[in-house]
Design a protein around this nucleic acid. Structure first.
Length: 422
DNA sequence: TCTGGGGTCCTAGGACCC
DNA sequence: TCTGGGGTCCTAGGACCC
């Protein structure tokens, strides 16, 4: 029988921030999304104050003040660095690891003699070496391991590790879990399931397979089978190459001028092209989207997207910027106040295995472009992002720049911001 | 005044081909 | 009166995840 573990960092971003501010132990901590828009992580104390996930920050400002909540802008370089340290510990200790997200990993513990003991050791080591508390759930399928993880988190008496295969088994846990809390069942399906009086994970398992297949596609069926103990999802040891890459931002304030949108879109195009080269990939199409605020009534709304195909697969920034600006011209309408824009690269292929096309540049010209980009990336790595910049992406302090008023120092990823000792 | 960013997969329907 | 059928590819939209 297969055995999976799900390792999940507790309140990851909040735990990261607290790591460097020990005086915040026991105090409520929240981390805000980009643009300081909404709450994306909460310490246990912040949860106890009733602050929900995704809460708009401005609506909770009074609670932050009244209850002495430590509020941080998000600091993804810091979280990414701590995540990498944790993942490398897992890779050392477990036979198979799938890094599922920045704060989660599945382990394949099939055949391990004492999996529960191993998980306790993992938990101890991550806590001691990195300082981040994790919870671990064990079960015969990934979806059940997710469920077991919830139990490990919610019931401290288990010491942070819960094994669904021992004790009274899965059924009691399924009966005690709301169907919407199951991994793979989102708000839409939850609503429809409630309408059919399906309230718990156990109710869901007992639905006819044919109904689940028809109404929730093979994805829903897979979830149902996994909950019943039949493993459909296997461990993906190697990360699959990306099929698309995106850079998008909400603006610091609304933008109606095309020239500002062109600056923003160019900036995002440059950024996403850097990601593309870091992955060793090339794109075959560029998609741009722009939109006005979602949450307003009585204001003219407009959102649009346009896709421009590239002549051939490329990772050359000027080509990508040019295509993005053409797509933007297709989307843009005069007279609207835009709040957000994004640039997506589609049809990604490995740079090493490119298709030869009649429209291709001469090989020497392509080589010239590649060395130019490699030089650019090297300079920006060495001297910081934006050391070498395209003219159109423009200087700091543009009106569309996002707000980020409360960022913590980049303790582990920026020489200027290392923590001081003594 | 103020509501994130970055992904994946599935399905239905249309275009197109033979 | 009668107006094929099957396959593939692409796209848009929906749903989910963290």
């Amino acid at each position: 029988m297969p055995l999976y573990a799900l390792v999940d960092c507790n309140n990851f971003y909040a735990s990261c921030e607290r790591l460097f501010r020990p005086e915040l132990k026991g105090r409520p901590v929240v981390v805000l999304s980009n643009n300081d828009g909404c709450v994306i992580a909460r310490s246990a104390e912040a949860k106890a104050l009733g602050i929900p996930m995704g809460a708009p920050a401005f609506q909770w400002e009074h609670v932050f003040r009244r209850s002495g909540v430590a509020v941080f802008s998000s600091n993804f370089p810091l979280y990414g660095d701590l995540s990498a340290r944790i993942m490398s510990i897992l890779a050392d200790m477990a036979p198979g690891v799938e890094v599922y997200s920045i704060d989660e990993a599945f382990l394949d513990l099939t055949g391990v003699a004492d999996p529960h003991a191993l998980c306790r050791d993992i938990r101890q080591r991550v806590l001691r070496w990195v300082g981040i508390p994790v919870s671990i759930g064990l079960a015969r399928t990934k979806t059940l391991a997710k469920l077991a993880n919830r139990v490990a988190k919610k019931q401290p008496e288990h010491g942070g590790v819960f094994d669904l295969e021992s004790g009274q088994g899965a059924e009691a846990v399924l009966a005690a879990t709301e169907v919407g809390d199951v991994w793979g069942i989102g708000p839409r399906h939850t609503k429809r399931l409630w309408a059919r009086r399906v309230r718990t994970a156990l109710d869901f398992v007992r639905l006819p397979r044919t109904w689940v297949r028809r109404e929730m596609s093979v994805v829903g069926l897979c979830t149902q089978l996994e909950l019943s103990g039949v493993s459909c999802l296997s461990l993906e040891r190697a990360a699959a190459p990306h099929k698309s890459l995106l850079c998008s931002r909400t603006f610091g304030r609304l933008v109606s001028e095309l020239s500002h949108l062109r600056e923003a879109v160019s900036t995002y195009a440059v950024r996403v092209a850097e990601k593309l080269r870091r992955e060793g990939a090339e794109a075959t199409a560029v998609q741009v989207y722009i939109s006005t605020p979602r949450h307003r009534v009585n204001v003219a709304q407009h959102s649009a997207q346009a896709t421009v195909a590239l002549a051939s697969a490329t990772a050359h920034t000027p080509d990508i910027v040019e295509a993005a600006l053409r797509a933007l011209a297709d989307c843009f309408r005069e007279g609207f106040e835009y709040q957000k824009a994004g640039v997506m690269l589609l049809g990604l292929t490995p740079a090493s295995a490119r298709q030869v096309s009649l429209l291709d540049l001469a090989p020497e010209e392509r080589q010239r472009q590649r060395s130019l980009m490699a030089t650019l990336d090297a300079v920006n790595r060495r001297f910081g992002r934006g050391a070498l910049r395209y003219a159109i992406t423009c200087a700091p302090d543009r009106p569309w720049h996002m707000r980020q008023m409360r960022r913590s120092p980049r303790y582990t990823t920026s020489w200027d911001e290392l923590p001081r000792v003594g």
